[in-house]
Amino acid sequence: MSVAKKEYKRITVKTLVDMKANGEKISMLTAYDYTMAKIVDGAGTDVILVGDSASNVMAGHETTLPITLDQMIYHASSVVRAVSRALVVVDLPFGSYQSDPKEALRSAIRIMKESGGHALKLEGGKEIKESIKRILNAGIPVMGHLGLTPQSIYKFGTYTVRAKEEQEAMQLLEDAKLLERLGCFAIVLEKIPAELAKQVAASVSIPIIGIGAGNGVDGQVLVLHDMLGMTHEFHPRFLRRYLNLYEDMTQAISQYVDDVKSIDFPNDNEQY
């Protein structure tokens, strides 16, 4: 059963908790630049994630690991300038929080001060709890991320579904409860069995946002470039392409090239 969509002038971390309590699903998409963020925000998306996936879709890296703190601040600043409604969550990049809680706090403060973002997202559970505690104690909202955590891809060795075995599933559930106790306002669950994700969502009072985690959670997130069909080589089961911009843009650009070479562009009405 669908729930009537309530109008919110501005989405906050409290809004998301209220949305879960009211049974209203949460929409979340990535954005990395001003122009795209303006469109995503204007279309009514609740949360915009400035993801470290910029490392892949914007910079062409194989993994999310190479993107730097400075680069994340640049992308986040561009997005924040475009947004008037959505909550802007920024990924802390690999190496900026895992080993040293003091370094985690310094990284978090830099992003918040220099980008104007509204909250941060960190990957991991109990192994990073001290970093999360320091950031939360500074008054910075934190979104967790469990399941497939791309910053740990070399440890996993594969992008296949996580937590299929009982031991890992139980650890994920415990980590979700820990993140809630620490004070995280929401958790992303990536590429885990739908039944487990549904169980996690029912076990905590904070919103659970899924990507490849079924429809029993409190909201969904996709990478913008994937759902618009700009990246055409990527075909995971969880991805629904709402457009095929790769083909449309290729056709448009090819037509432009032909028109320039044939002196069809600009025509008499397109010059001064």
Results as ranks from 00 to 15, higher is better:
residue 212 G to Q: 06
residue 217 V to K: 04
residue 242 Y to K: 08
residue 242 Y to E: 07
residue 214 G to C: 13
residue 196 L to I: 10
residue 181 R to P: 05
residue 173 L to K: 02
residue 230 M to C: 04
residue 167 Q to N: 14
residue 228 L to M: 13
residue 188 V to Q: 00
residue 222 L to W: 10
residue 205 S to R: 15
residue 209 I to C: 10
residue 236 P to D: 15
residue 224 L to Y: 13
residue 246 Y to V: 04
residue 206 I to G: 09
residue 186 A to D: 00
residue 199 Q to V: 12
residue 175 D to Y: 00
residue 210 G to K: 06
residue 247 E to D: 15
residue 248 D to F: 12
residue 201 A to E: 02
residue 180 E to A: 08
residue 184 C to Y: 01
residue 213 A to V: 04
residue 193 P to K: 05
residue 222 L to D: 08
residue 233 E to V: 13
residue 186 A to C: 04
residue 243 L to Y: 05
residue 191 K to E: 03
residue 214 G to D: 07
residue 250 T to Q: 11
residue 237 R to W: 10
residue 167 Q to W: 12
residue 226 D to M: 07
residue 197 A to H: 08
residue 199 Q to F: 05
residue 197 A to I: 03
residue 227 M to F: 09
residue 249 M to H: 10
residue 222 L to F: 13
residue 222 L to Y: 11
residue 249 M to T: 14
residue 183 G to R: 10
residue 184 C to E: 09
residue 232 H to C: 09
residue 177 K to C: 06
residue 175 D to I: 00
residue 239 L to W: 01
residue 249 M to C: 05
residue 192 I to S: 08
residue 244 N to C: 12
residue 173 L to A: 05
residue 218 D to S: 06
residue 220 Q to A: 14
residue 241 R to V: 02
residue 251 Q to V: 10
residue 213 A to H: 07
residue 229 G to Q: 04
residue 187 I to T: 04
residue 232 H to P: 11
residue 201 A to M: 09
residue 217 V to E: 13
residue 229 G to D: 02
residue 227 M to Q: 02
residue 218 D to T: 03
residue 191 K to M: 10
residue 179 L to V: 00
residue 210 G to H: 08
residue 190 E to I: 08
residue 216 G to Q: 11
residue 169 A to H: 10
residue 250 T to Y: 05
residue 166 E to F: 13
residue 189 L to G: 02
residue 185 F to P: 00
residue 227 M to N: 01
residue 167 Q to A: 14
residue 190 E to S: 09
residue 236 P to F: 05
residue 219 G to Q: 06
residue 179 L to A: 08
residue 234 F to D: 09
residue 250 T to E: 11
residue 218 D to L: 00
residue 200 V to A: 11
residue 217 V to C: 06
residue 171 Q to P: 07
residue 215 N to R: 14
residue 183 G to K: 04
residue 214 G to E: 11
residue 242 Y to M: 04
residue 236 P to N: 14
residue 220 Q to V: 08
residue 221 V to A: 06
residue 237 R to H: 14
residue 183 G to V: 11
residue 225 H to V: 03
residue 178 L to T: 07
residue 249 M to S: 12
residue 199 Q to H: 12
residue 207 P to D: 09
residue 181 R to E: 15
residue 244 N to I: 10
residue 186 A to S: 14
residue 182 L to T: 01
residue 171 Q to C: 13
residue 235 H to C: 04
residue 172 L to H: 06
residue 185 F to M: 07
residue 192 I to Y: 04
residue 251 Q to C: 03
residue 192 I to W: 05
